[in-house]
Design a binder for these strands. Structure first.
Length: 424
DNA sequence: CCTGGAGTTGTCCTA
DNA sequence: TTAGGACAACTCCAG
């Protein structure tokens, strides 16, 4: 008996899943699989909360399938080796996936597609993660956008509310129940930090609250978009006309996905080489203070502590902490980017990279280099009653809280000078 | 090809 | 107290 395989990656849901729906319409039974990729996992701590979240999400899918005498086959190893074994053990006709736009994933998929092809197996991938992908929103001459506003205008001009996939019958799943390995068997243990459930109702207050870090008014959609436990089509189909500011943020997400695809050099280099000459100080002990939230600037420290303790950080505070690292401490944005990548539950290469380059002033459509946030001004504006900083800095106001590690005016003019000298 | 308007999220100084 | 301009030009993009 021939099988169709649906390979789950970052689309960890049954509802409104493009590739899965397509697979279930093929003539064969569908075996869903997931591969815990050793090459990615080996970089992580053994209590990484994101692995916990992936595991929990798979467990939910598996439980649902088990109600229908089916299951998810969970494997661990290097994807290429795993696929070699799968080809031997099963009679596979085709493999269905949702497209992934990150450099590592693109390369992985190319290799596996070639491997499958050599065995006469079809590899199909579908647009699912985004509304418009890399080549769909382009300038009239066919080249990609590098500025957000014209990109967004084109996006909105083309946009029609997407159809979500209708519910399906479970009858076409392959009727085998595999036991799911435990988290420990995968080499991980449970984490104290948890991904929170999303709340689409919060989207209504987004525009007025997005600048106020104390208002717990965020939707917490980030990790769910990252791992596909909700579909972006579903989110957008729930939006009202007055949610335009929130929609804008989803368009930013697609803007940076598109930038990463079309300009892959941004992963390691400045989008604008003009700034390649900026000499970073890259002081290790300064960096450590920033990481640990002990800079002496409460807005920066509160943000870093929120990140360290919860895996989340408010949008406004991400800008302030990032700007502080690049401008006040003159530390290479890549250091900060790597730290956020390690800690953020909603870490996404394209957005993280795009926004760090924005903060550093080296990116496409970035903040001008001379725009330097004043952390005390930001505190006055966005946390007037100091409730956010007091929430995260318990020793605030006591001797235990450090003095500012660098004086603002001095750091500001030092940064301006470094950028002016480094620019070409 | 030329042209003109515009560009996520600020801050500081001066009048 | 507050409003306006400087910061620094440059590149992008549509017409």
């Amino acid at each position: 008996m021939k099988l169709t395989i649906h390979w789950f990656r970052r689309d960890l849901r049954l509802a409104d899943n493009t590739a899965l729906s397509e697979a279930l319409e093929s003539k064969n039974n569908v075996l869903p699989i997931f591969i815990f990729d050793e090459e990615i996992l080996s970089e992580l701590r053994d209590d990484d909360p994101r692995v916990n979240f992936i595991y929990d999400s798979l467990k939910l899918i598996d439980q649902k399938l088990k109600e229908h005498n089916s299951s998810v086959l969970c494997l661990k190893g290097k994807p290429f080796e795993i696929w070699k074994k799968l080809i031997q053990n099963y009679s596979i006709e085709s493999v269905y996936t949702n497209k992934d736009y990150e450099p590592y994933a693109k390369e992985r998929d190319l290799k596996i597609k070639a491997l499958l092809k050599a065995h006469g197996i079809e590899f199909l991938s579908f647009k699912d993660q985004v509304i418009y992908e890399e080549q769909e929103i382009v300038k009239n001459d066919g080249s990609p956008y590098t500025m957000f506003t014209p990109y967004k205008n084109k996006w909105l001009r083309l946009f029609t509310c997407p159809d979500t996939k209708p519910p399906f019958s479970f009858i076409n799943f392959y009727k085998v129940t595999f036991q799911m390995p435990s988290l420990e068997e995968i080499g991980f243990q449970s984490s104290n930090i948890r991904v929170r459930n999303y709340d689409l109702l919060k989207v209504d207050d987004y525009a007025e609250n997005r600048d106020l870090p104390i208002n717990d008014s965020t939707s917490y959609l980030g990790p769910h978009l990252r791992f596909g436990t909700i579909s972006v089509r579903h989110i957008i189909s729930q939006l009202k006309p007055q949610n335009d500011v929130f929609l804008s943020e989803l368009i930013w997400r697609e803007f940076f996905i598109q930038i990463l695809h079309n300009y892959p050099h941004v992963v390691h280099q400045n989008f604008r080489s003009k700034y390649d000459g900026v000499e970073w100080l890259n002081n290790n002990s300064d960096f450590e203070k920033w990481c640990n939230g002990r800079t002496g600037y409460p807005m920066v420290d509160a943000g870093m502590r929120q990140l360290n303790e919860t895996g989340y950080m408010h949008n406004r505070v991400r800008m302030i902490t990032a700007g502080f690292l690049c401008k006040h401490l003159l530390i290479d944005w890549r250091w900060g980017e790597a730290y956020f990548a390690k800690k953020l539950l909603d870490y996404e290469l394209s957005s993280n990279n795009g926004n760090w380059q924005w903060a550093a002033g080296t990116g496409c459509d970035a903040a001008p280099y001379f725009r330097i946030f004043n952390p005390m001004e930001q505190l006055k504006k966005f946390d007037k009653d100091k409730s956010y900083i007091k929430k995260w800095i318990t020793e605030y106001g006591s001797d235990a809280y450090p003095e500012p590690m660098v004086e603002h005016t001095f750091a500001r003019s030092r940064a301006l000078k470094a950028y002016q000298i480094g620019m070409n």
